[in-house]
């Protein structure tokens, strides 16, 4: 008891660091994102499964389609792989919080639910993007397609399409976290909502892989993709508190 009394630590309230609200919000997003990425890199359970799935599907598709056919459907083929492989990562997003009731501690922390959501969404985004960036060269090799002719425009489309996939997947991961069949429910809920974004990404990707840059006839797909990202990010940020707490 003596050492306790003389201890420098006290259960007295520790003053929190005061920062401008916007900076504090960004900092909280970053803390949650780093936590999720660190936990995933320790176990690698989601990213390994996702990567393995993507590579196997790309290999199987390479047996199924002729080279010419592949060029015509490259966008659809790639985004189906990205969407399915991405779901394996997104499924783990909130499920990771379950084993020790960690979600309770996150909800109890003085962090807005929006910061929690955006932190998780960003962590998922980088994981899904990593799988996609490995899958693209593999797709080129397996299908004998030069996909780099409009490289930077393709990267923009991949970045926007991946955010659409991630933001919808993360919010539905929060919604389905307590459902026993969440692995089945998540794709059933997310894919129908993702149709406009996937359609836009597929159309743009097919043209870009074929070497056609984004032009007046395809720019509307790009606008749709950007609009989808903005609208669903805003809706998710507003709804996440209700989804987590009720």
């Amino acid at each position: 008891m003596q050492s306790m009394a003389s201890s420098s630590v006290s259960v007295a309230a520790i003053p929190e660091r005061r920062r401008p609200a916007a900076i504090e919000f960004v900092r909280q997003i970053f803390v949650v994102m780093v936590k999720d990425l660190r936990a995933e890199f320790r176990t690698k359970e989601a990213i390994n499964a996702s990567l393995a799935f993507a590579l196997v599907i790309l290999l199987l598709f390479s047996f199924a389609f002729e080279e010419e056919t592949t060029r015509d459907i490259s966008g659809g083929l790639l985004w189906i792989v990205f969407a399915f492989a991405g779901t394996l990562i997104l499924n783990r997003s909130f499920a990771r919080e379950q084993p020790n009731d960690c979600l309770d501690a996150l909800i109890a922390a003085p962090v807005p639910a929006a910061a929690l959501f955006l932190g998780k969404a960003l962590a998922n985004y980088f994981l899904v993007l990593a799988v996609e960036l490995v899958s693209l060269p593999v797709f080129g090799i397996f299908h004998n397609v030069n996909w780099t002719r409009q490289f930077w425009q393709l990267m923009v489309v991949v970045a926007l399409g991946t955010w659409a996939l991630t933001v919808i997947g993360t919010i539905f991961s929060a919604l389905t976290v307590n459902i026993r069949l969440r692995e089945v429910m998540l794709p059933m809920l997310t894919y129908p909502i993702l149709i406009p974004a996937l359609l836009a990404a597929m159309m743009l990707t097919t043209d870009l892989v074929a070497g056609k840059p984004i032009g007046p006839d395809t720019v509307s797909w790009l606008k749709m993709l950007i609009g989808f990202d903005i609208i669903y990010t805003a809706v998710s940020v507003v709804l996440v508190e209700v989804i987590l707490v009720g």
């Binding site: 520790i14 003053p15 929190e16 660091r17 920062r19 504090e24 900092r27 909280q28 803390v31 949650v32 936590k35 660190r38 936990a39 320790r42 176990t43 084993p99 020790n100 009731d101 960690c102 309770d104 501690a105 996150l106 922390a109 003085p110 962090v111």
Partner: peptide
């Protein structure tokens, strides 16, 4: 303190407490 321990198995003890320290904005 609930029924679960609310700490992450994949993180170290120090990383867990630092995570919560950061979430609570400790100096």
């Amino acid at each position: 303190i609930g029924h679960g321990i609310s700490v992450y198995d994949e993180l170290s003890a120090l990383e867990n407490l630092m995570l919560y320290g950061r979430l609570y904005g400790l100096p």
